[in-house]
């Protein structure tokens, strides 16, 4: 242990753990709720809490991108999907398949293995938080100096995905006969 005890936790750690609790709790509600639209709305809470976690971890830019893209775009897209597939708006009791018990067993086993491994592997690791380490300036410099090629490849991928989505969802495009 390099000088930093687990108890008492610092204020930042308490804030982080509360946000993490909100994130995990709302994630549980996402996968257990009986109403489709509520699942999407709980997803907003989960992503918002995760953005707060990123802020506590000094990753400001990632936090705002998370708010813009996940809360702003992905959830709206999912809500569009719910509306367009004419899902029932109220309670529906057939959202879960028959293998809930098996799924719960697998999930608990996954959680046990992962938590055991990370607690065993990183119990002495301590990250010194340095404000400004994840600011837009630092990240922008990093992306456009060292990560330009993956960035450009991703823009092409995003374009291809958008064109693919348009082609898949339009009905008046027919294949060549």
């Amino acid at each position: 242990m390099n000088g930093v005890d687990f108890w008492p936790p610092s204020t930042l750690e308490v804030v982080f753990l509360l946000l993490g609790l909100v994130a995990v709790g709302s994630a549980l509600l996402v996968v257990t709720t009986r109403q489709l639209v509520h699942a999407a709305l709980w997803l907003v809470v989960c992503f918002g809490a995760l953005a707060g976690c990123y802020l506590v971890l000094t990753a400001e830019f990632v936090a705002w991108v998370q708010v813009l893209i996940y809360v702003g775009a992905v959830v709206v897209l999912l809500l569009f999907g719910i509306m367009l597939t004419r899902a029932p708006i109220g309670r529906s009791d057939d959202l879960d398949s028959g293998n809930r018990v098996v799924a719960a067993v697998v999930a608990v086993a996954t959680a046990g293995v992962l938590v055991g491994v990370v607690v065993g592997g990183f119990q002495h690791a301590y990250a010194e938080l340095r404000p400004g380490a994840g600011s837009a300036e630092e990240l922008g410099a990093s992306i456009f100096r060292n990560w330009v090629l993956p960035f450009e490849a991703l823009s092409v991928l995003l374009l291809a995905a958008l064109i693919g989505a348009i082609v898949l969802s339009r009905t008046d495009i027919k294949g060549r006969r």
Binding site: L17, V24, L114, A127
Partner: peptide, 19 residues
Amino acid sequence: MHVVYPAVVAALLFSVGVY
């Protein structure tokens, strides 16, 4: 910030996703 905290939160979130 102990690294364990974010790692454990991430592990729990991942398992919820698996479920």
